[in-house]
Amino acid sequence: MSRLTAHPIIKIDEKKEISIYYEDQLLRAKEGETVAAALLAHGFRIFRYSAKRNEPRGIFCGIGQCTDCIMEIDGKPNVRACMTIVHEGMTIRTQKGLGQ
């Protein structure tokens, strides 16, 4: 899991870096990317633990359909990480079950 640096077809633009907080840890994210992309770029892929069996879940569909990737974002539970764009100072937490 890493960011692309060079690509034969896609132009990788220099993007402004911003700070987000994942489990109180400072991470550098790129402006305009999704929470899911920022976390994957840093090697984090467990986004929540399921309510009934406490099993780890991460991204599945990547386009907002499956809700497997829901997290607690800015204090709000059940937010889809693959559909939410990062912003400066955003706080992100692994969701436990139905969230608080």
Binding site: E33, A37, R45, P56, R57, I59, G62
Partner: peptide
């Protein structure tokens, strides 16, 4: 099949081609 790391091909495509992040190695 629900483990983190099992994703759809479309998700892989979205992360790589739109978000410019590899969702795995």
């Amino acid at each position: 099949c629900t483990l983190p790391g099992v994703i759809t091909a479309g998700a892989a495509q979205t992360f790589v081609n739109v978000q410019h992040v590899l969702p795995g190695k």
